[in-house]
Amino acid sequence: MAKNKPEKDLRFERFGTKGFTATTKVNDFIDRLEAGQVCGTKCPGCGQRFFPPRADCPDCSGAGPMEWFQVEGEGKLATYSVLRYAPQGFEQDLPYAIAVADYGDYKLFGRLSHFGPEIEPGCPVTTRAVSLPDGRVAYEFVPQGQQ
């Protein structure tokens, strides 16, 4: 960690429209997201890939720090929903869609960039990092043909 960083590493607070968690051992996820990369972690011991990223492998003891891998290529839209009401702090985003994208080895939970009757489960999606107002960062799934 660089010397000029604050004592408390609150980078994760900037994740999504509204943050609920400030400190986590996988804070580097935010720096990677700012650099345009959506990343999960990989256990150096057993090679398992994790999304969401985690700091600890549930199966390996003492395998050393997790490695990062980038979410790349096409996944499949597993399912989604379009919200017409939102919890506090998300009202200005309405209507918006939350979704699960399936990459085979792992899945991601996040926002879907486009929705409508033509977007169905099974539809190919890619995942991209997005910048939000006030220096916040997130990622979203983009259906094929909507880039």
Binding site: G16, F20, P52, T79, Y80, S81, V82, P87, D93, A138
Partner: peptide, 23 residues
């Protein structure tokens, strides 16, 4: 940590299962 920042709530989660089931 990983879901709430996207703006989630209970009806939307069950709606995801509804879409999955209907499809």
């Amino acid at each position: 940590q990983w879901e709430s920042p996207f703006g989630t709530m209970m009806p939307a989660y069950y709606a995801m299962f509804a879409r999955g089931f209907l499809h």
